[in-house]
Amino acid sequence: MFSQPIVRKASLTSMDLSDLKPNDKAVIQSISTDAPGVERLMMMGLVEGTEIVFVRASLGGDPLEFQVYGTALSLRKEQAQQFKIEPIPING
């Protein structure tokens, strides 16, 4: 039967969601599941392997707007930092 997905090791770059530039795409690589509020975000689809687009930052650089599975989500910076990512090259 289908088993737990394999969680890949965090990549060497160790970028997180707050390091992206507007319109950058990335794939979530690893998550600090113990940080507060993270489980809630995972429930909305922010799990390993999910593709996510950084849309823009609000006034003053925080919170941040992302696009995940068709939903625009607003995350505060400290939450975004709990998600390590692998950027997807623009043309790829």
């Binding site: 997905p5 113990d34 993270v38 429930m43 689809g45």
Partner: peptide, 17 residues
Amino acid sequence: DTPPLAAEARYRYTWIR
């Protein structure tokens, strides 16, 4: 050791994807 809710989200979203 994974928080159960995180495990559930991982499993179900991966299934969907």
